[in-house]
Amino acid sequence: MTPATLTRGLRDLPLLLLCVGVGVLVLAGVILLVGANPLLVAQALGEGAFGSPYKLANTLVQTVPLLLTGLSVAVAFRCQLFNIGAEGQLLVGAIAATWVGTLPLPPAIHLPLLLIAGAMAGAVWAGIAAILKIGRGVQEVLSTLLLNFVAIQMVSWMVRGPLQEADRAFPQSDPVAVPARFTLLIPNTPLHSGVILALLVAVLLWFYLRWTVGGFALRSVGAGAEAAEAAGIPLARTLVLTFLLSGAFAGLAGAVQVSGVLYRLSEGFSPGYGYTAIAVALIANLSPIAVIPSALFFGALTVGGTAVQQRIPGVSSVVVQVLQAVILLALLGYYWAKEQRQKQEGATTP
């Protein structure tokens, strides 16, 4: 960051705070409307997310899938591909990971195989949207969304059919083999070593986008597909690669959930990570490194939201979704105001 961009960033800070402030006030109004005290809600939220080492570990565990799916959305949006299908890619990733995890495989390579399977399944699921877009001109917004619904039913079918536990008592899979699970980082907390993998992926993606030819092509297509193609960047190849990469991250998120948290597949295990991921990526301004704090923020909201629901009567955990929306709208307002200011400056300076 050069001094000039730093001062410009600092100058925009009051504007950003103003927009977010307005958003938070609106949310407080909504909470008052349903008859609760916004300050108590905020306190329960913070306490629930960070109040003890155990709660903090919980927050970090929630952060991992949001971080990976956030990266999935970020990389796609950077290329102007509106992949809204991280949720479905996560689900099929979890299916594939469960399948591999319950196979009798050598312990030494069981975990890596599980993770690779998850990532590949996610990539394949996103690949369907890639084929539809490039081959048939189908908007990825539509195809990825529809594939989410198919994936939800696929999980339901798997846990009642091919992947159902051996004694067929419940709609769930058998547990994955112990060597295929992430070890716990801190004993007696849910924090597993998948968090390290997720952080590593974020750094790798940053490196890829910033320093490699492929990353340059991806960003160029995102900045303007026609110009990029005119400059000799292979458009179709870049699009397909971005889809696959995006799907692989989301699929990996599903695999990490299976191997680090759930240990088996069941229905409805994702509270919409793939949708929250859109907010995660946008608030991070689509930067892989900034996705880390952004995911942590939303992880804290998820854990805190549950605490709010338990402690404050009349307020449900969906308050978190309203908060997400309000923050997004505040950011959209901020970008607009910033654009207006730049326009004015462009008009006054010769």
Partner: peptide, 10 residues
């Protein structure tokens, strides 16, 4: 997001 959250809350 907003509609799902708000309708749920209300």
């Amino acid at each position: 997001f907003l509609a799902l959250g708000l309708t749920g809350m209300l």
